[in-house]
């Protein structure tokens, strides 16, 4: 944190380090209108996800809710979190971790669904029938 902890390159002498070929830090500020638009879209999607619970879509309801949440997530990650303008590796990391979660939950649910037909309503799956 302190100045002593930072060793400067001789040629940089504490000033901004400019290099040919884009070595310098170029700020990419997201345009304000885009931030406002994303915020508005997030609010609209929140209203939609609340509204859709009053419509009976059967088993589809949870998937609609998850799809809307995922869409909101993409907006936040791509615009607010700047992924759209970053190097792609950050996005690969994010998708990789999400894939790991999907695999984890998906394979666990495969196992759970095996036991579902034998389950006693209201009881934990571990209780065996006599």
């Amino acid at each position: 944190m302190s100045e002593q902890g930072t060793i400067l390159k001789p040629e940089s002498t504490g000033t901004v380090h400019d290099e040919p070929g884009g070595g310098d830090l170029h700020a990419h500020a997201v345009p304000l209108w885009m931030l406002v638009a994303v915020f508005a879209a997030l609010i609209v999607l929140t209203v939609v996800t609340v509204a859709v619970t009053y419509v009976d879509l059967g088993a589809l309801n949870i998937w609609v809710a998850l799809a809307i949440a995922a869409l909101k997530g993409v907006l936040v990650a791509e615009i607010f979190m700047h992924l759209r303008w970053d190097r792609p590796f950050n996005r690969i990391l994010l998708i990789g971790s999400l894939l790991a979660v999907v695999l984890f939950i998906g394979i666990s649910l495969l196992d759970t669904s095996t036991y579902l037909p034998e389950m006693i309503p209201g009881h934990a799956p571990a209780i065996e029938q006599p």
Binding site: L8, K9, G14
Partner: peptide, 14 residues
Amino acid sequence: RHELAHYFDSTRQQ
């Protein structure tokens, strides 16, 4: 100003 640590080549890389 963004100071550059010696183990980075450029502020962008940092």
